Amino acid sequence: MSVRIITDSACDLPKNIIDEYNIHVVPILIYLEDKEYLDGETLNPMDLYKGMRSGKVYKTAQIPPATFKKVFLEYAKKNESVIYIAFSSGLSGTYQSALMAKNEVLDEYPDLDLEIIDTKCASVGFGLVVYKAVQMAKEGKTKEEIVNAVKFYSQHMEHIFTVDDLEYLYRGGRVSRTAAFIGSLLNIKPILDVEDGKLIPIEKVRGRKKVLKRMIEIMEERGVDLSNQVIGINHGDDLEGAKKLEEMIRERFGCKKFVVNIIGCAIGAHSGPGTLSVFFLNQKPPM
């Protein structure tokens, strides 16, 4: 590849895509009490969800500048052209850490060819942006072409998801204790979105079956040319739910290409088991 793509573990891309395109994924930090883990390396999602179901509370922390500095130095020394595609700055300080590290590396390597892009996206919505970038890099597209595509996909990526238990959003400070209690009591399932990089609740639906139906309706309202898109789906250890959602999308819109994966530890620590998400573009990419 003429352009090297770096990202972080909040992209939640499946391992086969990471391996196929040799994507450099920097892990976000996960904490259980005082013990530190690396997302996807020393802690896997299945163990995280098992722990959460048993009452364990996991915390997350941004990637420190020192980690990014080490990564960026590696490519600076080889004089490679690099794009770091980052997790939303509205949900993590990781993007800011990367900027700090870049400035430090520039002091030593003023010719550093590094572009850092804040996607304002999360999970597989973020992952689809990365996926497009690595496909273009493999095709030999220029850095400018890839950067322009990353910005377009980032700006037009829809994130529609629901959580199975509001308790986990309460722990992360996303909803009040009263809302979590009443929601659980009444079997209310919130539908959330990511807008300008931040988590926004958009609707409340009662019952799992109705919430999936409503997610499909929102896809129809917001999506454009869905049958020709790569659709992202991910889940918090609910593969059956993800398959059901995929089947509904195939039947409704005729979609053929999907990226389906379990939600990684960085996102899953806040959303919890049973989360279901769908990601798609709300505008047709330019030719």
Results as ranks from 00 to 15, higher is better:
93 G>V: 11
94 T>G: 10
94 T>P: 04
97 S>F: 01
103 N>E: 15
104 E>L: 13
104 E>I: 14
104 E>C: 09
105 V>I: 14
106 L>K: 15
106 L>H: 06
107 D>M: 13
108 E>I: 14
109 Y>R: 06
109 Y>G: 03
110 P>K: 13
110 P>C: 09
112 L>M: 01
113 D>Y: 04
113 D>W: 04
113 D>T: 07
116 I>A: 08
116 I>W: 02
117 I>V: 14
120 K>W: 07
121 C>V: 10
123 S>T: 15
124 V>N: 14
127 G>A: 07
129 V>F: 12
130 V>F: 01
134 V>K: 07
134 V>G: 08
135 Q>V: 04
136 M>N: 08
138 K>E: 14
140 G>D: 07
141 K>H: 07
144 E>M: 08
147 V>E: 01
149 A>T: 02
149 A>K: 07
151 K>T: 03
151 K>N: 10
151 K>W: 10
152 F>W: 01
156 H>Y: 06
157 M>E: 01
158 E>Q: 12
160 I>E: 01
163 V>F: 00
164 D>C: 08
166 L>R: 07
166 L>Q: 08
168 Y>A: 05
168 Y>T: 11
169 L>Q: 00
169 L>T: 00
170 Y>S: 13
171 R>V: 00
175 V>N: 00
179 A>Y: 05
179 A>N: 13
180 A>W: 15
181 F>Q: 12
181 F>M: 12
182 I>G: 12
183 G>W: 12
183 G>T: 10
185 L>M: 14
187 N>W: 12
187 N>C: 02
188 I>V: 13
188 I>A: 06
190 P>T: 03
191 I>E: 01
192 L>I: 15
195 E>C: 11
